[in-house]
Design a protein around this nucleic acid. Sequence first.
DNA 1: AAGTTATAGTTAGGTCACTAATATTTTAGA
DNA 2: TCTAAAATATTAGTGACCTAACTATAACTT
Lengths: 138, 138
Amino acid sequence: MLNDEIRELLDKISSQTRRNYNHLLHDLNLHVGQDNLLCKLWREDGLTQVELCNKLNCEAPTVTNMVKALEKKGLIIRRKDYNDKRITRIFLTDAGKDLEAPVNEKWRKQQDRLLTDITLDERMLLRRLLIQMEANLF
Amino acid sequence: MLNDEIRELLDKISSQTRRNYNHLLHDLNLHVGQDNLLCKLWREDGLTQVELCNKLNCEAPTVTNMVKALEKKGLIIRRKDYNDKRITRIFLTDAGKDLEAPVNEKWRKQQDRLLTDITLDERMLLRRLLIQMEANLF
DNA sequence: AAGTTATAGTTAGGTCACTAATATTTTAGA
DNA sequence: TCTAAAATATTAGTGACCTAACTATAACTT
């Protein structure tokens, strides 16, 4: 059935995309997901963990563990907020900042590959449909 | 940029879909991914682990662990192949068979929700684009 | 027939997700 | 003011993924 096919295609595409992207990131000693967290910090440094939760659309413990891993790699540092001692703010180190360009290049590469042979008109339509689907999820 | 947006939408849709579906499956005491393995067995019982790897598009250790978990729940049993002793074949128990209908119902529900307000024509076009994208991945 | 190569599966160790339970700090209400 | 509730983050435990390294069996190869 058509609907089943679409769901299966979506599953396949997302899992394979993740796998491929993970391979690309391996050269940079990063794991898929970590690049995403760094990406939020490149846009806005010093975010709290709760803010990261929201932006990454995942739960608090996931952020705790990812932050721990990235800190061990020396890409970020954690600093307690002075005014509210419950809050930990996450800051990029120089090493973390240096990854922005290479990660973006990998991302772009992956991106372009995915949309090969799809015209601009089709991409615009595709976006419209995906926006509708995303809205349906909530 | 358009391409970025499409990738981000795909990521969001797939992760949220997974999350939602996982919640639905929770009622059946199943984890997302496990239903997929069972699904292959409903179509063809007694598959080997390698066959499951290929059909599920995942690695051997993943299957080993999933099979272990499903066996512990009493949904499948593992049986050594008589002719080739390297091979383990996986068979459904009655409990495993009984899950087919309820899981399909959850799947259908999730499906329909995702494609709400998308016309038949649009779905056909969407499928075409997704097939193209899937092909681009390899 | 003996030794090499290929195949099937497991174990160990890692990451990304989740939930449930906990400690700590802050805020708000009686 | 003092206590209850809310917010922030962590720990513990689980499962789906992965790679690398291993065991066991089967199939070639010379």
